[in-house]
């Protein structure tokens, strides 16, 4: 076998073997990874909507009719607003929760916000994901900061410097957190209350 042919064959074999191994590993782990993510989100819904026994997911997306091409479906997926409705033991709706997103200092900040069904006031907020600076921006995770959103309504400004106190040394992170809550709240309430 000539040298160049040997190079091609050896590299191809190594590539195929590793692709084979990886596809097996991926198949086994991807199921668990998705389950973990779904479970983490669901358990957070119980946290932001106290008293919830069951969670129902409401899916709403613009009235798009044709969704056969994968790219369009991905875009569709991104436009989809997921609302998590918390029900008590008797099936009464206690409140609803949504995920707000905004760009922080180090990346996207995702916050889950729980809202009271009767009063449309924020009950609680929980930071699901962020990549803010440890020791500064990551204080948005703390109860002290999150509690500043409690009781806010969609008609409130929900902005740093107006009705929410920012964290000193973490202006960008606090502002992004407030943006995520406000924008998510406006979008969600439009869908949730708009249909009635």
């Amino acid at each position: 076998m000539s040298e160049s042919l040997r190079m091609v064959v050896v590299l191809a074999i190594i590539g195929m073997v590793s692709a084979g191994i990886l596809s097996v590993v991926y198949d086994t782990t991807s199921v668990i990874i998705e389950e973990n993510a779904a479970r983490a989100l669901e358990s957070s819904v119980y946290e932001v909507l106290p008293g919830t026994v069951t969670v129902e997911i409401i899916r709403s997306s613009g009235n798009q009719l044709r969704v056969d091409d994968p790219k369009e479906m991905r875009e569709e997926e991104q436009r989809t607003t997921l609302i998590y409705q918390g029900l008590d033991g008797q099936g009464n709706v206690l409140g609803y929760a949504f995920v707000g997103e905004a760009n922080g200092y180090g990346g996207v900040i995702r916050i889950l916000v729980g809202v009271d069904e009767a009063t449309d006031q924020i009950l609680n907020a929980k930071v699901l994901a962020h990549s803010e600076t440890p020791g500064l921006g990551d204080r948005i995770e703390g109860e002290n900061f999150r509690s500043r959103f409690v009781g806010k309504m969609v008609t409130d400004p929900i902005a740093i410097g107006q009705d929410i106190d920012g964290l000193s040394g973490a202006t960008v992170s606090s502002r992004a957190a407030a943006d995520a809550v406000r924008q998510g709240f406006i979008d969600t309430i439009a869908v949730y209350r708009g249909g009635e």
Partner: peptide, 30 residues
């Protein structure tokens, strides 16, 4: 492994193991 392509061959091996660690960690130690 022919000498001329040893680096790409090593990289494939290393990246395979790295991806395994990445996926397993993501699944079991999220």
């Amino acid at each position: 492994i022919p000498d001329k392509v040893r680096i790409p061959a090593y990289i494939i091996v290393i990246s395979t193991f790295t991806t395994i660690v990445d996926l397993v960690m993501h699944a079991y130690l999220p």
